[in-house]
């Protein structure tokens, strides 16, 4: 069992993707063409990008449930500002505002010592409410067509969201695995008290992490708004759950201290494959929610098993 779990930790998500690919290739002739595959990856990129940020939060021993509301806030701010400032300025302000939300999350969690789960859940409600208030509950149509160049175009035949995902993946990966900051994030999540005793400024580290999560959510908010040209205050309801599922399925342990961004990347694509597969079967959209819930439970189950078995192995002195 320990061996299986160790193996799963390394290649589990790839096996899932291979199995899903085989299944899709059999049931859908379309799946065998490149555009379909790129489409699936693009659909997966939204969740994956935010899950990069979420991976940081979980690695630091926390969680951020406010991401979908940050997307909505970004969308609304852009739609409101675009007529006066043009899309570049609007995007910059929207992203800055989102980072500010992350800063508030981080300050509440570290300085007021509130539970991250509840703090970010409250922030979710506050942002949703504020976004709806700003727009009076309406969606705002954006008339600047050139804004579409951000998220609805292709670069060398590759949809831009995929390009953003790859670029952000590289940046997030390098920061987490090769910089002192990344090391400090893992140390904080691994044992906060030990990190403090080693002289780390744990509060600052966590605040930056929550800013990173909000930043990644804001990026996806920009992309989605650019594709639809509508400012939607209630953008992507329930998406936070997808993001969590992707991060945990990717192998980032909820216990903290161990972030796996490669896993997150591929888990994002895997979730998208599930959606695609369910669409092929012409099932109701409700089944997609069901599927995400089941996937999350499965991921948690594996995470729990891993923690338990590794613990037992340690106590029994088995070398893993």
């Amino acid at each position: 069992m320990v061996k299986f779990l160790k193996l799963y930790e390394k290649i589990g998500i790839f096996i899932l993707i291979v199995l899903a690919s085989i299944f899709l290739a059999i049931v859908s002739p379309n799946f065998r063409n490149l555009d379909t595959i790129l489409g699936i990856i693009m659909q997966g990129s939204y969740g994956a990008i935010i899950a990069f940020g979420m991976t940081y939060a979980i690695t630091s021993g926390g969680l951020d449930l406010s991401v979908e509301a940050v997307m909505g806030l970004t969308s609304v701010i852009i739609a409101m500002l675009i007529p006066t400032m043009g899309f570049v300025g609007a995007i910059l302000i929207a992203i800055t505002a989102s980072c500010f939300v992350g800063l508030i999350n981080g300050l509440l969690i570290t300085k007021m010592d509130v539970n991250p789960f509840i703090t970010t859940l409250a922030m979710q409600a506050i942002l949703r409410g504020a976004s709806l208030l700003i727009t009076g509950g309406r969606q705002i149509v954006i008339s600047q067509k050139e804004f579409m160049s951000i998220g609805a175009t292709e670069l060398f035949h590759i949809p831009t969201p995929i390009v953003y995902m790859v670029v952000l993946f590289i940046i997030f990966y390098i920061i987490l695995n090769m910089t002192t900051f990344g090391r400090h994030v893992a140390a904080t999540g691994s044992n906060e008290q030990a990190a403090k005793m080693s002289g780390l400024n744990v509060s600052l580290i966590k605040i930056i992490v929550y800013i990173l999560v909000a930043f990644s959510a804001s990026i996806v908010g920009v992309i989605r708004t650019s594709q639809t040209l509508i400012g939607i205050p209630t953008m992507a309801p329930g998406f936070t759950l997808n993001v969590l599922t992707i991060a945990i399925l990717g192998g980032t342990s909820l216990a903290g201290g161990k972030g796996n961004l490669i896993g997150t990347l591929f888990a994002g694509i895997f979730i998208s494959m599930i959606y695609y597969g369910l669409n092929l079967l012409y099932v109701q959209i409700f089944y997609q929610m069901l599927a995400v819930g089941i996937t999350l439970l499965f991921a948690l189950f594996i995470d729990g098993l891993r923690n338990r078995y590794l613990n037992v192995a340690r106590i029994k002195g088995i070398r893993v």
């Binding site: 140390a187 999540g189 044992n191 030990a194 342990s253 903290g256 201290g257």
Partner: peptide, 13 residues
Amino acid sequence: KGEGLLNDMSVIQ
């Protein structure tokens, strides 16, 4: 255990 080891991290880290 409580405030020394970074449990999930490697020996070198």
